[in-house]
Amino acid sequence: MRVGDVNGEPSIVEDASRFAAVIYPSHWRRPPLIADVRLRWAISLGVVLYLVVGIGAVEVNWGRLSEGWERGLRFLGGFAQPDFVSRWDDIREGLLESLTMTLTATVVGVMISIPVGIGAARNIATSPVYLACRALIALSRSLQEIIVAILFVAMVGFGPLAGFLTLAFATIGFLAKLLAEDIEDIDAAQVEAIRATGAGWWQVLDYGIRSQVTPRLIGLSLYRLDINFRESAVIGIVGAGGVGATLNTALDRYEYDSAAAILILIIAIVLVTEYVSGWVRARVQ
């Protein structure tokens, strides 16, 4: 009987004895990620060179650093004993500004984002509208909040209104883009079915599309509320109101215990909004 021959069917391997005769390689290397040897070396060399030059460019002032070490410890001490009291009026004012501009900017931003998002969906908008809406979205996305804030402060002056405008503008880029993508991804069959009943453009929008994208729109709006609060803590640095300005002042005055109190409040509010918006999103979707 032939080796490995079970039930008379031919085996995968005819003759096991041939394995004894073959000499197998005793060396194996994993195939490299980049096949071309020269390219591989060039890239490795480039990376090493960059690290040397890049790290070399970082000037470290050791004297300043040892001084900083002491300040860092004082700052950590501030965290251990945050001072909510002595600057409480400033802190309350800053937080109130942050919260109010977060809320108003999100509401207004969402209201503008809905038509812009619909206009930026390729499957329902006409070509000129599509291009205009997409251009607005691209503009809003490529400009960072802080840069927009600088411009708005220059236009309407210091204060939370500039912050409100900044956040509302940033909300459009975020929300309208995701809304447009959602509308482009909807189930075409459902829209088809509504259209087949003889519904007009607005009716199709209401029955075929709104029902499909609303839960996600609510979820995204809440998520943006979250992001807007975080951003509102930052844009105060350039004068657009909010708790960021308070923090900046506290640090300028070396009041680390007040600064720590502000940071703790920011983190706490971020956690609460994140938790609440996560909870609501889970219920809506």
Partner: peptide, 18 residues
């Protein structure tokens, strides 16, 4: 929860600009 700009604000106060 803390934006990079705020981290930078703190670190500049501690380590100095750069």
């Amino acid at each position: 929860s803390v934006n990079a700009l705020i981290w930078a604000l703190l670190l500049v106060a501690i380590l100095g600009p750069g």
